[in-house]
């Protein structure tokens, strides 16, 4: 699947054995987005010509030349990935730090808002927690939001709820997140002309 980090677009994929990899979202052959590709076994293949890549980014196979072992120079960049408590973290560059932990929380859903981070904060009235925003959502359990700036004024919001929430509470949290997005987008549209005209 496609995802966006400050370094650009990435192709996020899970191998058959369950390992998550974050590759640069561009096949070096003809520039096709790798996030449109397909995963077979432990490799990601480009949808255009089927060139496939392993988890460290090395090219494994060029179907047009079945007898050829691809030279080592053909590779896509891969970013460090950690999976912790249901959240996938991608590091830009070198890092030794462990990703934040959200003990007791589980991911509910991810949604994109046409609003920037500041507007989102204003809309929630949330307090910044150890990582992400603690949001006392009306009528829902305690919600934790992880926000990732996207292109333009967009923000990707990951919604986490306590692991012991009931299905009804989770649905309430999902609806609260929709309301939050509407509120934030209203504020953004009224306050910032550039977004409303360039959408």
């Amino acid at each position: 699947m496609p995802a966006r980090i400050p370094a650009g677009s990435i192709a996020l994929w899970r191998t058959q054995s369950g390992r998550v990899t974050a590759s640069a979202d561009r096949c070096p052959h003809r520039g096709m987005r790798l996030s449109h590709g397909f995963v077979r076994g432990e490799a990601l293949s480009c949808i255009y010509h089927g060139w496939s890549y392993g988890q460290t980014g090395e090219c494994l196979r060029i179907p047009a030349h079945p007898g050829l072992t691809p030279p080592e120079t053909i590779r896509v960049a891969a970013h460090a990935v950690e999976e912790a408590w249901g959240v996938i973290w991608v590091a830009v560059g070198e890092t030794t730090a462990e990703p934040p932990r959200f003990e007791g929380f589980v991911p509910l859903r991810s949604l994109t808002a046409h609003a920037d981070l500041a507007t989102l904060k204003a809309a929630t009235g949330a307090t910044a927690g150890t990582a992400g925003l603690d949001w006392p959502a009306p009528g829902a359990p305690e919600i934790r939001l992880l926000s990732v700036p996207q292109e333009g004024y967009e923000t990707l919001i990951h919604v986490l709820v306590p692991g012991d929430s009931s299905p009804a509470q989770r649905i309430a949290a999902s609806r609260a997140a929709e309301t939050l997005r509407r509120t934030a987008e209203d504020i953004q549209a009224k306050g910032l002309a550039p977004w409303s005209t360039t959408r």
Partner: peptide
């Protein structure tokens, strides 16, 4: 809508036999 190529296993290709 492209074919989901992952639904089929990777074919084993003998070079030069195509």
């Amino acid at each position: 809508i492209h074919r989901l190529h992952e639904l089929k296993p990777e074919p084993h290709i003998e070079p030069g036999k195509v």
